Amino acid sequence: MARVTVWNEYRHERESDAVADRYPDGIHAVLADAFEEAGHEVRTATLDEGPEHGLTEAVLDDTDVLTWWGHAAHDEVRDVVVDRVHERVLDGMGLLVLHSAHYSKIFKRLMGTSCSLKWREAGETERLWTVEPSHPIAAGVGEYLELDETETYGERFDVPAPDTLVFTSWFAGGETFRSGCCYRRGNGKVFYFRPGHETYPIYHDDDVRRVLRNAVDWAEPGDEPAPEFGNAEPIEDIDASDDRTVR
């Protein structure tokens, strides 16, 4: 089982009664419950949990997969913490980026783009089509999953082309959106999953929880051999007598 750290901004739940009604203990608590149901070892961390936002070196060193939910306070995340998370992803830690965390510092750092998109909040139906049904993240989902009320996102989504696109969304207002994007960054796996606006009970949905549990299993570091870097001995015999040779 994976060691999962669920990171949440945890501002909306404390400032809005409508959000607190859906997530009385915070979005992070509902997500943690979904992962604990699968038997994972789970801890939570939040933005206001000290100067390191709960993401100390010790916590990240003990994390196989980090999930990230943020919305209103992306700029408050300290750059030193972003640097730390970025390094851990390159070293092999998995990262699940959820909904409005497309604008998080860490996702923009990993993508190298603005990560901008179109949006509208009107409680529209969303149908997420499984466009890569053989992918592990889509296991058990079926041809599509449907959410009765969601915030709408629309293209263009300014991210690099995903290594694999698992889900694409259609909204009642007509927009489409790449909603389940897989990337490799260094030794780490990154999955962006669109559903999850704070005023709708998205993370209580069984299909959404299944996708997130599948994503943890996919993003968890495996037993793949680590690549070797740096100065290398030649495989074949070469003339290394030149004074420019560095060995």
Rank of each mutant, 00 (worst) to 15 (best):
T152Y: 13
T113D: 09
E236H: 14
T56I: 04
E36Q: 12
H102D: 11
S169E: 05
W119P: 10
V190P: 06
G196F: 01
T63L: 01
S116K: 13
A72L: 13
F177K: 04
T150M: 08
A38Y: 05
D64A: 00
D48N: 13
T130E: 00
Y192Q: 08
V166P: 08
P133D: 04
Y200P: 00
D206M: 12
T245K: 06
D61S: 04
R247Y: 14
F191R: 05
E57A: 10
F171W: 10
M111R: 08
A32N: 09
T63Y: 00
F229W: 12
L96T: 02
H197N: 01
D239T: 05
E236L: 13
V6F: 08
G140I: 05
A232E: 15
T152F: 11
F177D: 05
T44N: 02
H53K: 04
H135R: 03
A32V: 06
G196Y: 04
Y10E: 14
E13C: 11
R178V: 06
L90P: 09
Y10M: 14
D237I: 11
S179H: 02
V211C: 04
T168R: 15
E9C: 02
T125G: 14
Y144G: 02
A232T: 13
T130K: 06
K189F: 10
W69E: 13
D83V: 00
K108W: 09
S241E: 15
L145P: 09
H204M: 07
E13T: 12
G50L: 02
L110R: 04
P160A: 10
E126Y: 12
R109F: 03
A72I: 13
E37M: 11
E236D: 11
V131S: 02
E228R: 15
H99D: 07
T125A: 15
H99S: 05
A219K: 09
G230F: 10
T5A: 02
E13S: 13
V166C: 07
D163P: 01
S100D: 12
T67V: 04
Y103A: 15
R244P: 10
T5K: 00
D64K: 02
R247M: 14
S179E: 05
P162T: 03
R178I: 10
I238E: 11
D243K: 12
T168E: 15
P221Y: 09
R156I: 11
L117H: 10
E155H: 07
G188H: 01
V4I: 08
D239I: 03
G26L: 02
E155W: 05
A161G: 14
N214F: 08
V97I: 09
L147G: 02
V166Y: 05
G50F: 00
G70F: 12
A101P: 04
T168F: 12
G123W: 02
E132T: 12
D61W: 00
G112E: 10
D79S: 09
V190C: 04
D61Y: 00
A215M: 03
D239C: 08
Y153T: 06
M111C: 05
V59G: 00
S16F: 08
H53E: 01
R209Q: 13
